[in-house]
Amino acid sequence: MLRHRVDAQAAYVLHTYPFRETSLIVEVFSRDWGRVSLMARGARRPRSALRGLLMAFQPLELGWSGKGEVQTLTKAEWLGGQPLLSGKALFCGYYLNELLLNLLPREDAHERLFSVYAQTLRRFADGLHEADLRRFECALLSELGYGLTLAHDVEGAGISAEASYAYEIERGPVRLAAPGDSPLCVSGRTLIDLAHDDFTDPRSLAEAKPLMRALITHYTGGKGLETRKIFMELQELS
């Protein structure tokens, strides 16, 4: 495998794991290299300059070098401009990170997804809107090549806003004679709005949620997401 040296790369920390006595393994989502695993030597020492810096949801500039699956972090700088997430937005941030950790292959650049991720985090800081979550989920699936077929149904006919459809994963929308009740049944309006990234219609927003959830469950191999479980427990409290 090629030995790289990356000097200054815009990146976000997705997750960290303790490694040995004082080090950390950092899962990173970077702009030009996609997802990489880096070893931050000594990052858990009490006086380490990296302490408090390698935090998720903060824009950083990282440098690393080495070869193999885990490379060595050589530089980390705080870029700023992103307020710390708090409250529900923080839990949604964890949800984005869990999706990326589960679905994004290593060392595969996704520049567009990176900018959607950064934009979503910035919007989270201003207040949480479900539409931002849906937009991120759509961007993630289409970047990974799992994009939805939204322009026409499986027969090749155009989508009619008034009709009902059942979305068949990996095939596309199948026109129904009457509205169905599975999570994958949506109105034509919702499919058209999804195609335009338009979530102003509350019905489209409401219908997009179970559809995206079913797709994500399918692509993550049917395993439930931890962050969703915790979010549900949080909802039960209030």
């Binding site: 408090g52 935090m55 998720a56 949801f57 710390l84 997430l85 708090s86 409250g87 529900k88 923080l90 839990f91 941030g93 964890y94 949080l234 409290l237 209030s238």
Partner: peptide
């Protein structure tokens, strides 16, 4: 940290309820 903040948020919601 993010984890500490998440814990605090959960507890504050529960306490407020």
């Amino acid at each position: 940290t993010n984890e500490g903040e998440a814990t605090a948020h959960y507890l504050s919601e529960g306490a407020r309820a």
